[in-house]
């Protein structure tokens, strides 16, 4: 792990407000490293610049200032050719919020083939990749279906398969679960985490749901276009007041742990997921009971 997969240096982005040609800053001086195979969540309230940050990583937007290195290549350099851009977008795939607005074809498998087709992959290989991608998201039986008849979660899985078929190194999920019902969210999360686990794909998920963020290896908190905090879920959720202050929730389990600690209970161990939390709290209470028995 000598060089990070994604490396940004003093990244800034601002857009010109059409009305009075004023520069509206969105991101300031964001310097961040993401290692290959990492699973990271970016959280922040609306307008914190998290979506903008994601869009800079595959040059859907061009940074106003700063440098981005993907896999060692400076994508902000003026020498970037069109081919380099295609190679970048193949490497860094993106799944968006609205499942309806990212599917192109009228048949599921043809939609998944769209990316590889654009890359000029030979027909027989596209077929193989599409079948493989369908299997990876568990949509094989829907290969010949029309996307508009699928549920939100299924559509989103098709969109993910469309990216997988391009064989990316990194996938960015830009609030991909925001428009889904709980079932759809669970489907998408499962697929996302399986891709990370089994294929070592670097996953960057941008989310409003703190319980989703809590599952990542690392959380980056953006506020007003700046990196406010960067750490493990435990570290991040140990400051609930800070998160609330910038308009974010804290997962219920983390809030509970925080209040217990404040009340004087010493809690050591995993508190990232509700399950881990239950275990840690039980262990703490058992230990306390044990202590009272021994001492009392």
């Amino acid at each position: 792990m000598s060089q990070p997969f994604i490396h940004t240096e003093h990244l800034s982005y601002s857009y010109e407000d059409g009305a009075d040609a004023k520069q509206m800053p969105v991101l300031h001086d964001v310097s961040l490293d993401v290692a290959r195979g990492e699973y990271i969540a970016i959280i922040g309230h609306n307008g914190s610049g998290k979506s903008t940050f994601a869009k800079l990583l595959n040059l859907v937007l061009e940074p106003t200032d700063g440098k981005i290195l993907i896999d060692g290549q400076d994508i902000t350099s003026p020498d970037m050719t069109d081919d380099d851009l295609l190679a970048l977008r193949r490497k860094v795939g993106m799944v968006f919020q609205n499942p309806d607005n990212q599917l192109v074809a009228t048949v599921v498998e043809e939609d998944i083939a769209f990316g590889p087709e654009n890359l000029g992959v030979p027909s027989a290989e596209i077929r193989a990749r599409v079948d493989e991608a369908l299997a990876a998201v568990g949509m094989t039986e829907y290969a010949r279906h029309e996307p508009h008849r699928l549920s939100g979660g299924q559509k989103q899985r098709v969109a993910i398969a469309g990216i997988i078929a391009m064989m990316p190194d990194c996938m960015i999920f830009d609030e991909s679960t925001a428009m889904l019902d709980p079932l759809g969210r669970r489907e998408v999360l499962e697929v996302m985490e399986r891709l990370h686990r089994e294929r070592g794909i670097t996953v960057i998920t941008i989310t409003h749901h703190m319980d989703e963020a809590a599952r990542a290896d690392r959380i980056v908190v953006l506020d007003d276009g700046r990196v406010l905090r960067d750490g493990t879920p435990e570290q991040i959720f140990s400051e609930p007041e800070l998160l609330m202050e910038i308009g974010l929730d804290v997962p219920q389990s983390a809030a509970l742990v925080h209040r217990l600690r404040k009340a004087g209970l010493s809690l050591d161990g995993e508190v990232g997921t509700p399950e881990a939390c239950v275990e840690t709290i039980c262990r703490a209470f058992a230990a306390r009971e044990h202590n009272t028995l021994v001492n009392g």
């Binding site: 869009k55 595959n58 977008r89 795939g93 993106m94 609205n98 990212q102």
Partner: peptide
């Protein structure tokens, strides 16, 4: 949205 998604898919 679709135009952006299509660009992202090369």
């Amino acid at each position: 949205d679709l135009a952006t998604a299509m660009e992202c898919r090369c």
